[in-house]
Each structure stands twice: as structure tokens, then as C-alpha cells.
Nucleic acid binder design. Structure first.
Lengths: 216, 216
DNA sequence: CAGTGTGAAGCGCTTCACAGCT
DNA sequence: AGCTGTGAAGCGCTTCACACTG
């Protein structure tokens, strides 16, 4: 056992969750590290090493109990109890995220959606009424908000992030194509859709000159 | 100079592009590696090392020409000429992506959007008519398609990916929460929105017990 | 004997430190 | 004098190999 889990391990934990969810749907009760490795596009040694950072999960000669492992991963990731999410920006992207079915399934609940555009405020998206962004602090004071998702245009992203921090929210998922600055006690991740396309473009440029392989 | 650029370097190239775009808007003509490092949330040495994989871009004692550097990065990433993109799945997410302004700005053009739902086919999204997925092969035969974006439900993702591969498209950006299997000559990346939330949840779980720092 | 848990080796990326231009 | 370009050192993650266990 060990306490300090590598950042890379945490990023893989999510893949394992996906794989385990799939196995559970297929009524598989036990899986070996080799099984999990194949499905999660890694290898058996990596799987075992990753789990070993958090304790002994498996039975030797048998493998891992799918349901037990899922529960353990949820505990590690802190999603055993529901996490609350607010979405800021009720444009196309924000609306799409508000209705994304994957959130509920994995323990995240969208509790509010905000926008600054008076034409949108008061309208309904996926069962949520669009609130003015100025209400953010009030909403955050009334209930615990775990994560804020920023889905506003690039130009507004930093200002919105500042308001989020001001409201006492400690984690931000940013979809605007700009790196936002936050205090060290706030977690922030930026999802760069364009970056993914550019990476693929690089892959294409490489494999056009000389045949090469690649897998995500 | 060198040919084999580390994967990690390629992933940072995109950040540099964002930073350079910002500097260009601010009419800055020259930037040092220290400037770029600060804006892109890395350090000066990393910036110089990254660029050194592709040649000598800067002038000693001065820094880098913003516009020249941008052009160089575009050439490396293969986005100097427009890349064509098709979107598969005209749900909320697919529609949001079709209208995402960041694509055009960075050299990606959405040329078609597909869906399997007869109720959607023929309707218009962001100036594009929704086509039946069965037309994919025909469209791909008529014009070069660089990248396919998969924005369909989890259950359909692998089948759609197979059709994309069949149509001869060599790069896939997948938004479904499942790892798709593709041949080695096809590039595939999965954007896991839920994974990002889970990473943030882990961050929250860590910093609740003992105060810790973190930055994306 | 099948499959986990883990020290140790291997490898790739990051950081350092400084020589070399301008 | 200032800043780039780069070998070399340092560090963290991955892979290996095997002892250990049900």
C-alpha cells in the first residue's frame, strides 16, 4: 500500500470505471487484471500497479470482484455520494452538457444553469430554469456546489472563473479555449476540443509521409 | 534539430497556439520563452526544449517572432491548409460542436453532419443539412474528409466508428464514454467529460482531508 | 497453478546549467 | 547583456519478473 498516487494513475481510474460498468451490465462478476487491461487499453501490470496504490483489492488466483472494485473506485474518486455541478453558459454547449446522461450515471447532478443573456434567463433547459449569473453567489451559499462547468465564450471565461472562485466553489471544468488562472486551492481543468483535433491533424500529417501507428 | 517529437510536446503545441493567438490580438510582435511559458502554464526551459524538436525558431538575445512562430506551429500540426471535419450525431452535443466557433478559427471546417434518426434527417443545423449516416461513404468518396467526430450515444459508438473506418477516414475524435477499437493506421482520441469531473472530484476529496494544491 | 502484489530495472519527459549567438 | 539551443542530470511513470497466496 501507499498514499501518494501518481497523477497518471488517477486519470486511468476513470477508464477502469467505464470498463467495470460495462462488465457489470454483462453480468460478469469477476475480472482479472488481464481482462481489465485489455478493455481499458493498457496492460495487466499497469492495472495491478494502479490498484496497489490504494490497497489490496483482488484475490490471488481469482481476480477482482467487479462490484467491489467499482465501489472502491467510487470511494477513491469521492463519487460515492453525489457531487453537485452547476453549468455556466446556456448556449449550445452548456445546454448539451446539462442534458448529458453520463453525469447522473456516474454520480454527478446538475443543480443549476446560469447565463448572462437576458433573453435566455427564465427559459428552461433540461428541467432547469436558466438563472442570471448574478445569482451564483446566492445559490452557492444556499447549497453546497462541488464543481462549476464553464461553457461561455473565450472572452468571458476568466471573468466567470473569478466569480466562481469568489462564490467559494473549489473545482472548475473549463470548456473555453483559454487557460484560466485560479488560486492554488481551486482545482481547474481545461477541455480543449480544438487541441484534440490538432493532435489528430499532427497524426495525419505524420502518417501521410511515412506509415505509422498510433492509438489513444 | 530532431525528428521524433515526444507525444507530450505535441499536446503542448496547442497551448502555445492559444497563447500566440492571444499575443497576436494584443499586437505583441516578439515574445521570449519566459513570456510564453508563463502564459501557457509551463516554464521557459520546457518551451525552448519543445520548439527545439522542430528546428531553430528564435533569435538569441531577442526571442521569438509571434507571427512566424504561429505559422511554424501550424505547419507542424498540419493545419496550414484547412482540415475537413464531419460530425456524426446531431443531438445536443453534435449540434453544439457543429456551431463551435473555435474550429474555423484554427483551421477546421465542418463539412457535413450525419444522424440515423429519420426525424432529424433533412433538418438544418448551423447551415448544414443533416444527412443519413448511410451517406457517409458517398460523401467521403466525393471529398477528402480528414477527421470524423463521433457524438452519438455510448451504445452506438463502436458501430459508428467501424463505418467511419470503412469509409476510409483516418482520424476519429470520440465523445462517447467508451474506448473504441480502431486499426493501427487510424488515429483515435476519446474526450471523457465525465473523467474530467471525476478527476476534479478526486482533487476535492484530497483537499478536504488535508490542504493541498493543484493546477491543470 | 492461475493470478495478485511489488521491488527493481527501464524509459521518456522535465529541469538544470551553461555554451553560443546577436 | 540577453535569450536561445542543448547535452546531461534528475525524476516519475511504465514494464518486467517473480515471490506469494488462495
Amino acid at each position: 500500500m501507499n498514499t501518494g498516487a501518481p497523477r497518471a494513475t488517477i486519470e486511468r481510474l476513470c477508464r477502469y470505471q467505464q470498463v467495470l460498468a460495462q462488465l457489470e451490465r454483462e453480468r460478469v462478476e469477476t475480472a482479472s487484471s488481464a481482462d481489465i487491461g485489455r478493455l481499458a487499453v493498457t496492460n495487466a501490470a499497469q492495472v495491478r500497479k494502479d490498484f496497489s496504490h490504494f490497497g489490496d483489492f483482488g484475490r490471488r488466483g481469482v481476480g477482482y470482484s467487479v462490484s467491489e472494485l467499482r465501489a472502491r473506485l467510487r470511494a477513491i474518486l469521492g463519487t460515492e455520494n453525489e457531487r453537485t455541478v452547476v453549468i455556466i453558459g446556456a448556449g449550445n454547449l452548456g445546454s448539451a452538457l446539462a442534458g448529458y446522461p453520463g453525469f447522473e450515471m456516474r454520480g454527478f447532478r446538475v443543480v443549476a444553469i446560469f447565463d448572462n443573456n437576458p433573453a435566455k434567463i427564465g427559459h428552461w433547459v433540461e428541467g432547469l430554469r436558466i438563472l442570471p449569473l448574478s445569482d451564483l453567489a446566492t445559490v452557492a451559499a444556499e447549497q453546497r456546489i462541488d464543481i462549476a462547468v464553464i461553457a461561455v465564450p473565450e472572452a468571458a471565461a476568466q471573468a466567470v472563473a473569478d466569480q466562481v472562485v469568489e462564490a467559494g466553489i473549489k473545482a472548475i471544468l473549463n470548456f473555453a479555449p483559454v487557460y484560466i488562472q485560479v488560486p492554488a486551492d481551486v482545482g481547474a481543468r481545461t477541455v480543449g476540443v480544438t487541441c484534440q483535433l490538432e493532435y489528430l491533424s499532427y497524426f495525419l500529417a505524420q502518417s501521410q509521409g511515412s506509415s505509422e501507428a498510433e492509438e489513444s
